[in-house]
């Protein structure tokens, strides 16, 4: 049992580290990319790689943190619920923003290879 917990712990730790790195990459992408629509992809890295992965990592780590007493289950549960929540909310938020920006034409789609949405007259 302890071995399983330790393995889970190290996987979780790795996920947290991955999360930090993707967070940095996402932030760099937000800064570097030229246009709102392209930045959406960087934001996805920030939200999924930078938030959902580390949260799952924390959930995997928490059973081994015995000094927290029974509250380690609280940590685990809350981080799982938050991870689930962000995994649902982040893409929806991006989609809603992108759709609104495209419909209201506040942001020009640039650079672009092709824009079928505009061709279809939406």
């Amino acid at each position: 049992m302890e071995v399983i917990l330790a393995i889970a712990f190290y996987i979780g730790l790795a996920l947290v580290v991955i999360g930090a790195i993707s967070d940095l990459i996402g932030a760099l992408g937000m800064l570097r990319f030229p246009n709102f629509y392209v930045r959406l992809h960087a934001a996805t890295i920030g939200a999924i790689g930078g938030a959902v992965y580390p949260l799952i990592g924390v959930a995997l780590m928490s059973p081994s943190l015995t000094s927290l007493g029974t509250y380690r289950w609280y940590l685990m549960g809350a981080s799982l619920v938050t991870a689930l929540f962000i995994a649902m909310a982040a893409p929806t938020g991006s989609h809603a923003l992108a759709r609104a920006a495209h419909r209201a034409k506040v942001v020009e789609v640039y650079p672009k290879v092709v824009d079928h949405l505009e061709e279809d007259g939406k």
Binding site: I48, S94, A98
Partner: peptide
Amino acid sequence: VSNSITNTPGTVVVDLDEDKKILYVH
């Protein structure tokens, strides 16, 4: 389907047409 597409970096669903069954993906 569409949230999975958005959640994958590199593709974002911008709009969808329910009648023609088309997703518009950036």
